[in-house]
Amino acid sequence: MATQTFQHSSFGNGQVVVEIDVNDATWRVSRVRCINNSAHALAARVLSGGTEVWTGTAPAGQTTQWNVAGVQLGWDSVNSGIVMGNYVVQVRWPA
């Protein structure tokens, strides 16, 4: 088992990067991480069917990780991509 990391989004010429960790044994997303080297916070949220099910804020100048066990994202081994299903992950920067 290993964790694979995929970039979800980035801002400010790479000053802010949002990554998703995937357990390649279960193909479940385990964590969302924001590496924020900017002077502004980042806001993130997850929608399920248009309803907000999770929100988080990544402060400026630090790395923030969120456990997203409640967000059942999946893995498409055929396309080597994340299966979003009914989920939408939104981030904004500056928050």
Binding site: F11, G12, V83, Q90, R92
Partner: peptide, 20 residues
């Protein structure tokens, strides 16, 4: 440059989400 927002999904109605 001022504000931004981004989003990903799989549907018929993509949306970036709102900026600040």
């Amino acid at each position: 440059y001022d504000k931004s927002a981004s989003s990903t999904g799989s549907s018929t109605s993509p949306s970036s989400g709102a900026t600040a």
